[in-house]
């Protein structure tokens, strides 16, 4: 069982790392590195507590470590490994210090709220235009003329004019955009445009035109119908 004392903990730590880094992101969003570090630290702590539950297990766990670190009765490869570890530890500490204190040349992180709250007067409005095939068709035509250059003929946010804009135009076929918004929200966003956003939406960066100066409300409501139909999405409702 020599060496086996560390084999299981090593397998456990590597297993936890692989699970957090590779397996879990298959089902959900990738974990931030700081959280993975925290889980690995907890796993290591758990292993140490488990290994020191009894006197003999403590000896079995720490004995080889102590012998390794003190170099007691070691020679050849073991002695080389010991020196490598003793050199590596200060180097890693130095590297960690460097990465946390070296001046950063990264631009400041931006926490832009993509769908900030609309002003009160734009909540709960219902589309006054009847949802008829003709109106949907008209809406799609208006969309093609006014919106598709940025938001794309396929409603995917990849229109020919989209490339230079940061943030990029919304992708309506993505279930996290218009599918989770109400029609009244879209009415506000189209009517007031990027400059109508509150500060958390960073209005100074948005290329979305303020369509109220060019399009009548009725056209905007028809465009909304055309957008949902074309992107195969349904507006969010209270029910």
């Amino acid at each position: 069982m020599k060496g086996g004392v560390f084999l299981k903990p090593a397998i456990l730590i590597v297993g936890v790392y692989v699970f957090l880094k590779i397996v879990l992101p298959l089902f959900t969003a990738p974990l931030p590195a700081s959280l993975i570090f925290l889980y690995l630290a907890l796993t290591t702590t758990g292993i140490v507590i488990f290994a020191t539950l009894s006197g003999p297990s403590t000896d079995a766990f720490f004995g080889p470590i102590v012998r390794f670190l003190t170099g007691e009765g070691q020679g050849g490869a073991a002695q080389g490994a010991r020196i490598a570890v003793l050199l590596l530890f200060p180097v890693l500490v130095g590297w960690q210090t460097y990465t946390s204190t070296a001046p950063s040349d990264q631009p400041p992180a931006e926490n832009r709220t993509i769908h900030p709250a609309p002003p009160g007067e734009y909540t709960g409005l219902s589309n006054p235009v009847p949802n008829t095939p003709e109106n949907v068709m008209t809406g799609k035509g208006l969309y093609a003329a006014f919106c598709s250059p940025c938001h794309g003929g396929n409603f995917d946010g990849k229109g020919p004019a989209s490339r230079g804009f940061n943030p990029p135009p919304a992708n309506f076929s993505d279930p996290t955009t218009i599918a989770m918004l109400q029609e009244s929200y879209l009415f506000w966003r189209i009517k007031k445009g990027g400059v109508g956003l509150p500060i958390e939406g960073m209005p100074w960066k948005s290329a979305m035109p303020r369509w109220e100066v060019e399009l009548p409300d009725e056209w905007i409501w028809k465009i909304i119908m055309g957008e949902y139909d074309g992107a195969h999405q349904k507006p969010r409702t209270w029910e």
Binding site: I13, Y17, A33, I36, F37, L40, A41, T44, T45, V48, T52, S54, G55, T58, D59, F61, F62, G63, I65, V66, L69, V85, L88, F89, L92, V93, W95, Q96, T99
Partner: peptide, 29 residues
């Protein structure tokens, strides 16, 4: 009991040392 067996604090020191090496390694960006 383990303190008595291995001498005062030394297992914990060794544990901290090994743990720190592991942790520092996992933090390399």
């Amino acid at each position: 009991e383990s303190m008595r067996t291995l001498g005062q604090v030394k297992p914990w020191c060794a544990g901290i040392l090994v743990g720190t090496v592991l942790a520092a390694g996992s933090l390399v960006p």
